[in-house]
Amino acid sequence: MDWVNALVQGMLLGGLYALFAAGLSLIFGVMRLVNIAHGDLIILAAYLGLTVTTATGLHPLAALVIVVPTMALIGYALQRGLLNQTLGDDLLPPLLVTFGLSVILQNGLLEIYTADPQKINAGALETASIAVGGLQLGVLPVLTFAVAVAVIWGLQWTFYHTSLGRAFRAVSDNQDIAQLMGLNRRHIFGLAMALALGVTAIGGILLGIRTSFDPSIGGGRLIFGFEAVIIGGLGNLWGTLAGGVILGVAQTIGAKIDPGWQVLSGHLAFLLILAIRPNGLFPRISA
């Protein structure tokens, strides 16, 4: 039963990783941008959640109403003000600029919030649990997983059933021709980043409720999101959810064997899949 429990907990944890990964997957899909600062933006969202809840007394989930639009605005401004200038055929500018951004964000957070670990207080939600078939499942992990499924369904729907999604796909296919159709790619890219950071905000707040965080842990979250994307296969949002679940399960099973092995076994699972299925389990586009 212990192992079944570890398996189920790992799956639920995978929901959180899928939320980290969805934004990464989205911006890669639309503009072929890999954002090294993605993890630090997740942590920024967690800190914004912390500030909003402590300043207003709102429940962290209610704080999403403020943090999600704020992060979306930051995303739009970041894309139009900075990242659009890095796009082109050369790989180095986006990579090095987002890397610089990561260092700036990390140290900026350190300057404002110090290195002390923080946690978002969500009251009863943190400890509540439900019994399902002999397993005690935390309400928070179940909620996180449900949110991840809803978010990915929502992104998928946006992508394939709205004019915004159509514009995303058109710009991703051929930027010049999309411009001829009256689509301003700079604006579309801004919207894509806004959407991506909106999703990131949800991931950041759920992370902040679940565990304590400090400014240095962004890199680790970037890596988890990245692993979920690659395991699932590039360009496939449902694959990303599957990738998150596989990563989460690998981590909880590893932790069951030896607590020190949690993160390491996740990485090893990723490397194993990279070795046997370099394009991920459910690839849609080639990198």
């Binding site: 941008l33 890999v34 090294i36 986006p94 990579l95 970037l222 990245f226 690659i230 990279l274 990198a287």
Partner: peptide, 8 residues
């Protein structure tokens, strides 16, 4: 892994 994904 290609490009930026190689980096990560």
């Amino acid at each position: 892994l290609r490009g930026a994904y190689f980096a990560i």
